[in-house]
Amino acid sequence: MSELAVPQLERGRRRLLPPTPFTLAFSFLVLGVVVFLAVAAPLVAPRDPHAQNLLVGLTTPNSEFWFGTDDVGRDVFSRTIFGARGALIGPLAIALGAFLIGNVLGLLAGFRGGLIDAAIMRWVDLMYALPGLLVAIVLVGVLGSSYVLAVVVLLVLTSPFDTRIVRGATLEQRPLAYVEAARTLGLPGRTIMFRHIFPNILPVTLPNAFLNFAFSLVALSALSFLGLGVGPGSAEWGRMLAESRLLLFENPVAALAPGGMIVLTAASMNLVGDWVYERLADRGRAR
């Protein structure tokens, strides 16, 4: 009846201010550049990122080395470019993996209920109770530092959060008439979960994947910074930041370049995630 008109009219004021078109375009540009650098690193980078040149030693930015060199004469510019790979692949694997695990487990828990729900959610509770980064540090410390291990540990730690969000969103959709109609039609549970409910909770879960990306980029860098991710000397932003922090006064760019890239990429991913949410939330509502 008439009260249905009101929420529509009030829609205009509920939203937070969306990012301006300029910020958004800039975020997309940053992400585009990072992806391009990751893919085309060997073609773009002027030098081998690992080649040491003790003759050159530590230099500040100059026409030959744009970002200068570190204490063993490695080209910071090339290293920053190659660092885009590690910054992209790990977080991408974590965001995608957590999205998959979270959606499958969350949909199962929310839609099936009962024992399945109880089992999944107790596991989630257990993971919530663990201090995430601390566990990561201990595990990586015990099993030896490796990038893959850091990614796997972060993935296992991230997916319970996704599971809980997806379960909540599923519980919200489950009593709606379209789901009940699908059940009375006799559609199999997996069809209802993945073809009917999943697209409707996408506005919640997809932007969350973007946030996960940004979070795990920072977390992975932090682990590398602590020396628990990639091995010493690798062209990885967190590791570079750690190794160059002692050179802050000799060549500040060596630390600022990877640090700035971490901040820019994570912030851009967050903004793009917000934008995706805005788009998806409007879908099915706009005519």
């Binding site: 379209y178 009940e180 109609a181 039609l185 099915g284 509502r285």
Partner: peptide
């Protein structure tokens, strides 16, 4: 046996 529900606004999947 099939069913028709009360609320026309939630009885169809909005994305399909």
């Amino acid at each position: 046996v099939q069913v028709v529900f009360q609320d026309p606004y939630s009885s169809l999947n909005p994305v399909r």
